[in-house]
Simulated assay, not measured.
Amino acid sequence: MKRAVKFFLVLAVTILVCSPVAAQVTKQQQELRGEVETKTGKKVRLFHSGTQDVKKTICIGDLIPVYREVYAYGAIKKTEVGKIRVLSYVGEHYFEAEVVAGKIKTGDVAQKESAACLVHPAPDED
């Protein structure tokens, strides 16, 4: 009997000690999951295909609406969550942009006409 009580006591203490550690999630993990909202004034990166039609459609200085797509009841519901302003080109497949309105998450879609870009957080500049 004494041995069983000791075992359950050690098990309970182990669970209590480990649970807060397991519950902590880093900011980087939250960004990758799309749980962190980027607010007005912050920079983001827009991933695109790099094709000429995207580069012709989306220009520096454009104000583009951003949509969040949610799968519900067998269909994809698309709602506007904010707007971004395109600031510059970054390599072959990215634009740098600034959030002008709304709260934008990783994985949201910036769309102008038929060109669409996937929103990613901008790397931290230290």
Rank of each mutant, 00 (worst) to 15 (best):
2 K>T: 04
2 K>N: 13
4 A>P: 00
5 V>W: 02
8 F>L: 12
8 F>G: 01
9 L>F: 13
10 V>R: 15
11 L>I: 06
14 T>M: 13
17 V>G: 09
18 C>M: 13
20 P>V: 01
26 T>L: 00
26 T>W: 00
28 Q>T: 08
30 Q>A: 12
34 G>Y: 09
38 T>Y: 02
41 G>E: 02
44 V>D: 01
47 F>G: 07
47 F>L: 13
51 T>V: 02
52 Q>E: 14
52 Q>W: 06
54 V>K: 01
55 K>A: 05
56 K>T: 11
59 C>A: 02
60 I>P: 12
60 I>V: 15
62 D>A: 00
63 L>T: 12
63 L>P: 11
63 L>R: 15
65 P>D: 02
69 E>L: 11
70 V>E: 15
71 Y>A: 14
72 A>N: 13
72 A>R: 15
72 A>P: 00
73 Y>P: 00
74 G>Q: 12
76 I>P: 04
79 T>M: 14
80 E>C: 02
80 E>P: 00
83 K>D: 10
84 I>K: 07
86 V>Q: 01
87 L>P: 05
88 S>C: 08
91 G>Q: 00
95 F>Q: 06
96 E>H: 04
96 E>T: 10
97 A>I: 11
98 E>H: 09
100 V>N: 09
101 A>M: 07
104 I>W: 03
106 T>L: 04
106 T>E: 12
106 T>I: 03
111 Q>L: 10
111 Q>R: 15
111 Q>P: 05
112 K>V: 05
112 K>F: 07
114 S>C: 01
123 P>W: 12
125 E>C: 11
126 D>H: 06
